[in-house]
Design a protein around this nucleic acid. Sequence first.
DNA 1: TCGCATTTGTGATGTTTGTCACGCATTTTT
DNA 2: AAAAATGCGTGACAAACATCACAAATGCGA
Lengths: 191, 191
Amino acid sequence: MYYPMQEKLKEHITKLVPFSNEEFGFLLSHFEHKKYKKNDFIIKEGKDVNNCYYVISGLLKLVFNDANGKQHIVSFAMEDWWESDFFAYFNQTKAKMSLQCIEDTEVYSISLKNYNKLSLEMPKMERFFLKKSHSGHIASQNRILSFLTSNAKERYLQLLQQQPLLFQRVPKTLLAAYLGVSRETLSRLSS
Amino acid sequence: MYYPMQEKLKEHITKLVPFSNEEFGFLLSHFEHKKYKKNDFIIKEGKDVNNCYYVISGLLKLVFNDANGKQHIVSFAMEDWWESDFFAYFNQTKAKMSLQCIEDTEVYSISLKNYNKLSLEMPKMERFFLKKSHSGHIASQNRILSFLTSNAKERYLQLLQQQPLLFQRVPKTLLAAYLGVSRETLSRLSS
DNA sequence: TCGCATTTGTGATGTTTGTCACGCATTTTT
DNA sequence: AAAAATGCGTGACAAACATCACAAATGCGA
């Protein structure tokens, strides 16, 4: 029997760190497969964050809601991304952000307990997590740099170039909340 | 004989992951101790990035210089911070940023070769690097959030609250380059 | 298919921030 | 000690961006 979801994760992981089929079967047993519908909350602000998520398919937004009711999008999590409210996850505190489905989404989830267990049992898996964390950190730094060096129009053009698919999949309002400009300004930039 | 610098690193590491004196001696042998003077470049844009640095004492800035000759400060690295141009370091490419001393600075440096060697030889050390990388990633996300949710004055006040020491140690011009505002605007905010 | 919510564009206006210019104090260099 | 560079504040003006208001278009559920 063929499991395309498993193959996706397997390729994703072994691209960075090689694993045999047996090893992969073992590490997979630490994950749970879950499906969510559009608009479902995977993580809700104020609640516990028990899991970290690998996106098999679909699209998520990691959102911070400020005191004025405005939403700010820290990241979009697409296919092959790992996402969570990492601070709350690793420190076992309540979520300050929400993780919500923009589209129907399939994920593998791993609890912190299993994350730690797996890291201890399989040093190669800890190596994988380390590499992923490095790229996440680097990606965040690049986003910081775009705020420092670029104005709204330039950030808009950079995103259009780097993630053209996003413009077909999410409403402009959300892109504005990601770019840090108002909806109206974004609308004027794109015309 | 007493080595205060070694003690600093030892405490810094064992706070997250415990090591015996023997183990620490072994891991320390993978590092080099170096001293730099104010204004020295530790990493220079366009050059190779052979090392990652732990700051024993002093103060560094991680800077990106844009096409217009403006400098943008990605981060200040103080005592107990780890810093490098991580993209260039892990991918063995030329530096896109510079790491320069704001004050006379002492560091421990580790080459990528030794970083990988150490990670393989001591799983606990890989665990330490993983935890450090997580906190770096989380810190970057918080910085992104401050750009999304706050205007110049609010970001200025947040920095003042979170890093009050910085205001005594670095010129306002650099703080402005970190906050993403012009020197003049920052000057008006603080008066 | 109808009705309603969501999405998007656009004008008018005000606020925030950047840029250029200047003066003066402080620090560094020679 | 003189000269040069750096740091810092401030005025005047321009550019970027937010906000409020409204209308048209689109999508989606009953």
